[in-house]
Amino acid sequence: MNRKILNIVVNGESHQVLIEPHWTLLQVLRNEIGMMGTKENCLEAECGVCTVLLDGKAINSCILLAGQVEGCSITTIEGIGDPEHLHPLQEAFIECGAVQCGYCIPGMILTAKSFLDENPGCRPSRDEIREAIAGTLCRCTGYRKIIDAVATAADRIALSGAKQ
């Protein structure tokens, strides 16, 4: 096999992984680096459960060839908070009841983070949030509480940004 070395930074840590050319970023994250919070479903960028941040922007890791992200920085759900230090989005998702089965939630939170980070301190409307998360399917919640959670988190982030 024509394996090649891939250098990527995942959640701030440098990784060197031997990859095959057809492996996707999703495969590398799950199978080689062990970031299992990045989920797997449709593998055609239709459901969004595999969403991660590539240099800060949400992308579908299921259809991105790992070889194309040489030298890039990836953030997965594990990289934005942990049980002791939850990200405001993570906190708001729990608080607002936005989590049911939870399988779409890592992708949903990262999609929302990428969107909120586009305009730091923004307080998007509910329709803007709706549009931003439309690429991540949730079959459990009907989205209302997810929108609540993103709006709540956006408010808190804006507020803490204003204080600083």
Partner: peptide, 21 residues
């Protein structure tokens, strides 16, 4: 009461293990 679910933290941090994982 509107209490948060017991498995919420695991699910928002990616630590909850699914059968697929």
């Amino acid at each position: 009461h509107r209490l948060p679910r017991r498995d919420g933290v695991g699910k928002v941090t990616g630590k909850h293990v699914y059968a697929a994982d």
